[in-house]
Design a protein around this nucleic acid. Sequence first.
DNA 1: TTTTTTATAAACATGG
DNA 2: CCCATGTTTATAAAAA
Length: 321
Amino acid sequence: MKNSSHTLPPFSSSPTALGGSLTLTSSPPSLPLSPVSFPPSPTSLSPAAAESARSSSPVSHLAASQCLEGRGLGHWDTSNQDDLTCLSWLHQRGDLLLLQPMTKVTPLPRRQPGQLPPSPAAAASSKPPYSFSSLIFMAIEDSPQKRLPVKDIYGWIVSNFPYYRTATGGWRNSVRHNLSLSKSFRRIQRDKSQLQTVGKGSLWCVCPEYRLALLEGLRKTHSYHGSNSCLINKPVLPCPLTPDHEELVTMEPHEYQAHEVSEDTEKDPLSDSGYIELHYYESDQCQYLVLPSESELDLETVEILQLDVEAQEAAGSLLDL
DNA sequence: TTTTTTATAAACATGG
DNA sequence: CCCATGTTTATAAAAA
């Protein structure tokens, strides 16, 4: 197969470029694109829910936990790259469908000769390389509804990164500060009609227009390349696009989940060669866009196509009103 | 080097 | 009052 089909330009580092403008810009130098694997959580439940589940009935653990069995992601052991490249937890959670298995993996940077491997204690106490934005992003993405209260964001971080188990409380302040300040996250009201609504505060979700930038941030953190599939998953529950925080929209958790699997074809605006198939696979949690690896689509094109699809969906929902 | 991003601390407000 | 949540400002370190 062609190697060139696996090298795509990186995501645009400018979130505004993802915000809906379809303006084409010159392509940046090609870099390998790879999917990003998040640290798996022990279960797909929120930390609070996971806690209650553990204390009651055995949870059918997903491959996510098998992927990292006996090891927290906060243990930053670069001598073993499996936990960094394993996507099975994400596959299991979202029925991620890859057209081809991953066959090429670039190893992470190795330890320098003579450098001692990190001891488990040191690994547990060493700070994870993720920014707070990335941590929050991963926590929200790993939640069933793609939205979490700040307390559960804390919980996810603690349960996935032992460092924060013993760290002083300042990092929670940083999490809240990041949530407030970052444009990538949006605050939405809890559904007050839900009986199980407990706790205070709002729920936080990822703004769809910043999602790719967050993914790219994660990819950079991993310094991990090598995949022959390009894929973008998008949350089934997009963050409501409120103009500001004054009018917060409450969303029903199931209103987007009844869609049947759709399979559309879209015209590639950059190509004269006809149509390129964009396969959408929708699970109960996520909708995945899978492109054939032979395609010459770069990420920018994919973004444009996806925006186009989303625009059509939005237009369709408006027409339905 | 400068600029931008990120981390950290802290003051303050709000609401349960 | 206490505490969790959320916003904002300030500062320093790290990264680009």
